[in-house]
Structures are given as structure tokens and as C-alpha cells.
């Protein structure tokens, strides 16, 4: 049996079920399954512009594993664009820890407690944050 995959941490899952090409004439062209961790990898590297080292630490995987996930994500997306395929968001091997908020400014992660304002990063005070869920 193959070794169980170490679960990749993701801060928040993609907020879509699927991307569909429009304006395509003719036949069904199929779909690619973009795993949550692949979405997260693309987001961290190409949207949040983190280095692979920083991003891998956030996802709790090695840098090499991050690179593999990222590579796989890019191939799927490029395949979808070129071959006109639907991109489906699929759960994959992840653990979603919604209690962590993320600071886009300093890359700190933090939990929320009941009595602070929760509008700012608990470390650098930036307002450029993505809020988690208060337990």
C-alpha cells in the first residue's frame, strides 16, 4: 500500500465549484480536477506572491513537495486553457483549519479571540488580512 499522504494545510478552500469555458462550439471537451492543495499552491505562489519556501511552510509540506503540487496545478490549468476543459475544484489531500487567520502583509497566521477587535493582524497590525473562523 502506498504511504498515506501527509495532509497539506490550506487556509481556505476555493470559493467555486468549477470554472467552465464559454463560447465553445461543438462537443464536450471534458474537465480537469484541480485539487484544493493545488489551488492553494497557485494562490500562495502566484497571487500572494510568496516564495516556495514560505508557501511550503504554510501548507506544512517540504519545499520539494510544494514544488510538485504547484507544478501539477500549473499543468492542469494550462491543459484546461489549451484544450478548453472545465476546471473542477476537488477536495484532495488537505486539512482545512478555518480557525487560522492569515496576514497578507507579514505572512503571520493567528487565531482570533473573543475580545479583540479582530480587524487587524495580531502581529504587525496590518488590516490586509484574511479572517478565519472564531471558535
Amino acid at each position: 500500500m502506498a504511504r498515506k499522504k501527509h495532509l497539506r494545510k490550506i487556509v481556505s478552500p476555493p470559493r467555486f465549484k468549477s470554472f467552465k469555458p464559454i463560447g465553445v462550439t461543438g462537443r464536450e471537451t471534458g474537465s480537469v480536477d484541480l485539487l484544493y492543495e493545488e489551488y492553494e499552491a497557485i494562490k500562495l505562489a502566484d497571487y500572494d506572491l510568496l516564495s516556495h519556501k514560505e508557501a511550503s511552510a504554510l501548507m506544512d509540506v517540504s519545499r520539494a513537495t510544494f514544488a510538485r503540487i504547484y507544478e501539477s496545478a500549473r499543468r492542469k490549468i494550462s491543459m484546461a486553457l489549451v484544450e478548453i476543459k472545465e476546471i473542477k475544484a476537488v477536495f484532495g489531500n488537505v486539512t482545512i483549519d478555518e480557525s487560522w487567520s492569515f496576514c497578507n502583509n507579514c505572512s503571520a497566521r493567528f487565531t482570533l479571540n473573543t475580545d479583540n477587535g479582530n480587524k487587524r493582524c495580531a502581529f504587525c497590525g496590518s488590516v490586509n488580512i484574511k479572517l478565519g473562523v472564531n471558535k
Partner: peptide
């Protein structure tokens, strides 16, 4: 108790406190 996780970039305790003071 609020938990804060900082990425690994060899910061010193002093530098961290400076950031906390400056926010």
C-alpha cells in the same frame, strides 16, 4: 489565548517586540 504563528526567517525576540510596539 490568542496564538500567532510567524514564518521561519530567523527573527530575534527583540525584532519581534519592536514590530509589536510599532503596530
Amino acid at each position: 489565548i490568542q496564538m500567532v504563528i510567524l514564518p521561519d526567517n530567523n527573527r530575534t525576540v527583540g525584532e519581534i517586540i519592536e514590530t509589536l510596539k510599532g503596530k
